[in-house]
């Protein structure tokens, strides 16, 4: 063995370990099936890669279902928005995911279809105080300064969904429903939204943002129990760089787009 400088205690340990009754080392060479074959030549690898890609492209062309699965989502920060295969009559401009997000104009048309009542917030784990949550998050917590009489959130939750998610709720007077919910998520968190009927591009402070109108499904997975909730409110999702950290914001309310953007831009 190579140069060893044992202490006396280590030397004794080695002496004891040397007597360890290992089972007989098996003859690994006796298994011809496990010996790997000669490596593939680079050209073979290239041909194989091209064949796999070609098969995938063909599958995309001939399978609308696969195409929808692979291409029909839009990622804003840590929020993945799954688009419908067929858009219902949009009330805001539907997303064209092939174009840059920031250049699409904003639609402020009120939605025509009635919003179904969202399912109430399920009992959320991790209720805490704002000051406690602030101390644990790797990014600064920002609160809306608009509308001026909004005040601090009524309830604060800090959840671990791969990364930390801060959920701030402003409750409707004398109701158990939240009138405003603001999520703040670091880059390790992960949530998704599905069954979206209307999706439009907009901006918050010049940052690409998604505007989801009407009923859709919110899914949050992670270390804590998963949450699947039917959302009947409108939702604004955007990302900002705060002190070098990418923070995704999700604002849920019954407000129209202009108001939601105004609240989003009032965060301080």
């Amino acid at each position: 063995m190579s140069e060893q400088q044992w202490t006396q205690g280590e030397e004794q340990l080695v002496q004891i370990a040397r007597a360890f009754p290992y089972p007989t080392t098996p003859v690994l060479l006796a298994r011809p099936t496990t010996f790997p074959r000669q490596r593939r030549q680079p050209l073979q690898v290239l041909a194989l890669a091209i064949a796999v890609i070609a098969l995938f492209v063909l599958a995309l062309i001939f399978s609308p279902r696969l195409r929808a699965t692979v291409t029909n989502f839009w990622q804003i920060g840590v929020v993945r928005l799954f688009l419908p295969e067929v858009m219902e009559t949009p009330t805001a401009e539907p997303v064209d995911i092939s174009t840059p997000a920031v250049e699409t104009p904003v639609s402020t048309t009120p939605i025509q279809q009635p919003i179904q009542q969202s399912s109430p917030w399920p009992p959320l784990a991790g209720e805490t105080l704002l000051v406690t949550a602030t101390a644990q998050l790797p990014f600064p917590v920002r609160l809306p300064t608009y509308p001026p009489d909004l005040g601090p959130p009524d309830r604060v939750f800090l959840q671990r969904r791969n990364g930390l998610i801060l959920i701030l709720l402003w409750m409707a007077p004398e109701k158990e429903q939240a009138r405003l919910a603001l999520f703040q998520m670091g880059s390790d968190a992960w949530i998704s939204k599905g069954d979206i009927k209307v999706l439009a591009r907009t901006t918050v402070h010049g940052h690409a943002a998604a505007w989801v109108e009407g009923v859709h499904i919110l899914q949050m997975q992670g270390e804590q129990e998963g949450v699947i909730r039917l959302v009947g409110e409108n939702v604004l999702v955007w990302v900002e760089q705060i002190n070098g950290e990418s923070v995704t914001y999700r604002l849920e309310s019954d407000l129209l787009l202009e108001e939601a953007v105004r609240i989003g831009e009032s965060l301080e």
């Binding site: 370990a17 360890f20 009754p21």
Partner: peptide, 18 residues
């Protein structure tokens, strides 16, 4: 398959304890 107490030498037994 572990050596029985009879078959083990004292050194092996010590190593197994370790």
């Amino acid at each position: 398959t572990a050596p029985s107490a009879h078959e083990e030498t004292e050194a092996q037994e010590q190593a197994l304890h370790l």
